[in-house]
């Protein structure tokens, strides 16, 4: 019997689509093992570019800065987003609810370059010099909606029954939050934090515009390398980043979709 839900050719199309999706990444990985100094001339298999990448002081500094900024920005953004989501989803008679929701999601409504220009001018006007601090502030702000959306989705998907039951069983609002709400929305909070972390780690536009000595993040550093031309070391660095993203993404997905209801 024919399955009416199937469209002829759709599967082949999808297979090609996935190929297109992964081919560029696979090309970078393949080229990273090229022994030759010229990226485009293949002379043999080698791990030497990984070795040189791992001894590249500037790269390691950039990684450290990116991790620091992303770590702090994630903590701030997730906390702020969690509080906002609790009020906006569970609060009763919240004044300016719709406006507040727009405000929290504001960074999603504007192209990042506009926000980057805005904070650049702001920081120059108030004379903020500390490059790291500038990055942390800017990243915290634009990471908030990315942390907010998964937390809100999780809260909305959770019946208020559990929280009412907790209050009914003599739990104060704080105990209710700590022992019932937070454990139950933990996957959403985790997903939000992960997303915020990745968005911060990945950010180029703002970090590049705010870039000053001592605050070069990983993407900005790589951008500099690309401007100098493709090299096998660049391919090795890219492959390492792909590897890192892969581990992060897999951990995040596994933890997010682990159902707490199933023990």
């Amino acid at each position: 019997m024919r399955d009416v839900r199937r469209y002829p050719g759709a599967r082949i199309f999808t297979a090609l689509f996935f190929l297109w999706l992964y081919l560029p990444i696979l090309v970078v990985i393949a080229y990273s093992f090229n022994e030759n100094r010229l990226a485009s001339v293949w002379t043999g298999f080698s791990l030497r570019w990984y070795e040189s990448a791992l001894h590249n002081r500037a790269l390691l500094d950039a990684v450290q800065i990116s991790l620091t900024v992303a770590g702090i920005a994630t903590a701030i953004a997730t906390t702020v987003a969690l509080m906002a989501a609790l009020v906006l989803v569970r609060g009763r008679d919240v004044r300016l609810r719709r406006l507040s929701e727009t405000v929290v999601n504001l960074p999603l409504l504007l192209p990042e370059i506009v926000l980057a220009v805005a904070v650049l001018i702001l920081f120059s006007q108030i004379g903020l010099q500390n490059g790291l601090l500038k990055l942390v502030i800017a990243h915290s702000a634009f990471c908030i909606p990315f942390a907010f959306l998964p937390i809100r989705a999780r809260l909305q998907g959770m019946e208020p029954d559990f929280e009412e039951a907790a209050q009914d069983l003599y739990a104060s609002p704080w105990v209710t939050f700590r022992r019932v709400t937070l454990p139950l929305i933990a996957p959403g909070v985790f997903a939000g934090a992960m997303l915020a972390f990745v968005i911060s780690m990945d950010d180029f536009i703002t970090s590049n515009l705010l870039n000053s000595g001592g605050s070069t993040t990983l993407p900005v550093y790589i951008f500099g390398l690309i401007k100098q031309g493709t090299t096998p070391e660049l391919n090795a660095i890219s492959t390492l980043i792909v590897l890192g993203s892969l581990i992060l993404a897999t951990t995040a997905l596994v933890l997010t979709f682990r159902n707490p209801n199933r023990a």
Partner: peptide, 10 residues
């Protein structure tokens, strides 16, 4: 006793 029972799943 809630209609959905609201037993804490965790």
């Amino acid at each position: 006793v809630f209609q959905s029972y609201a037993l804490f799943p965790h």
